[in-house]
Design a protein around this nucleic acid. Structure first.
Lengths: 193, 193
DNA sequence: GTCTTCATGTAAACGGTTACATGATTTG
DNA sequence: CAAATCATGTAACCGTTTACATGAAGAC
């Protein structure tokens, strides 16, 4: 149930409509915590009814409306409380390593396809995260610059440093997965000469 | 929905009761794909009604019964089909890296507690997986030896090699997480002198 | 006769996925 | 006037989590 904290993290920077939030989300924190629109809009409504955020209804054109959300004091506090609370770790459930452990039941071709797909999958993630990291280093991430503009000077270094730290971790994990799968491909070659 | 394949992987070795299966599960494949008993028993019933496994009801004492499950041809085929099919990767949803990216909102103490807990969490996983790896190398894992005893000579090397490969990957990931969190602790020290 | 192990679940709630649905407004 | 974007969801389903429930058989 981290979705609401991911959303709060974005909204804390400044008010946004559900639509804008959703766009920002997919470009920033969505790389770490995926959620489809169909989950975001209802969650915003729930957060509103829980008093964490408030909406200001605006008219758009003649008939259209949009709801501009901002974080309440209770929402800010909820975010800080979450930050101070221990994280609950989910139990491991890893389909790739499950399959890898029983790969002798696959044909060599299937084994190779599986490992190649694993590489493709993690190369995709890697590219995204490296892109984010480059944006962070260059201060060209729009969310981050918006964030820094409302952040006191002394906090800016930390804000950047922690973002860099988080994405570096993801990049390393992706690299690890890719290396592992490459080793798997060599192993398949060795096992079926 | 890999649970049924994790269960099939165990049952393929030989018939087991739900209870024995559940015990084996927690000691082997459960390190990679966690599931509580309350999910295992109903899943076995569903697999039975889907024709993947069949149960032989046995009496135990005067009144007790147990159901001894074995894999059907359809179940064997389903397992092999799954092995040949592409894996569906879930979207990233990583609470630890989510929090790490916004750690400037936490106090230094909270940040440290979070990172220390991350280390503890992954050291636990690491110990389990390294233990498994040692059992694999020493051929002292009970599931694995049962498995090897029904495996033709030529397949044994592969069976062992793939298990080692899978658990090595998990061990490396755990080490990566621990190193990352340690670097995070140094970062906190640097940011709050 | 108590404790451990064997043996097997049910029920409610929750979070996430997938598919679908609708219509207004702005831009070219 | 068509296409892109803005804007916001609903509904059904599925897998997982958590809490609870029960009772027999074997060991000490």
């Amino acid at each position: 149930m981290s979705l609401r904290y991911a959303l709060l993290a974005i909204l804390r920077v400044g008010p946004l409509s559900g639509y804008d939030l959703q766009k920002q989300f997919h470009q920033s924190v969505g790389h770490v915590w995926h959620a489809p629109d169909s989950q975001i809009y209802p969650e915003l409504r729930k957060m509103e009814s829980d008093g964490l955020i408030e909406a200001e209804e605006q008219t758009r054109g003649v008939r259209g409306t949009r709801r501009l959300y901002h974080v309440t004091d209770a929402g800010e506090q909820a975010f800080l409380d979450w930050m101070a609370a221990p994280l609950d770790y989910q139990r491991v459930r890893d389909p790739a390593h499950l399959r890898a452990a029983y790969l002798e039941a696959a044909t060599p071709d299937s084994a190779r396809r599986f490992l190649e797909a694993h590489i493709v999958e993690w190369e995709g993630e890697l590219a995204q995260w490296e892109g984010e990291l480059a944006h962070i280093e260059a201060l060209s991430n729009p969310m981050l610059t918006r964030r820094l503009s409302v952040t006191p000077e002394a906090e800016r270094e930390r804000t950047i440093a922690y973002k860099r730290f988080a994405y570096e971790g993801l990049v390393e994990r992706a690299r690890g997965e890719i290396e592992w799968a490459r080793r798997g491909l060599s192993l398949v070659d060795r096992l079926y000469p």
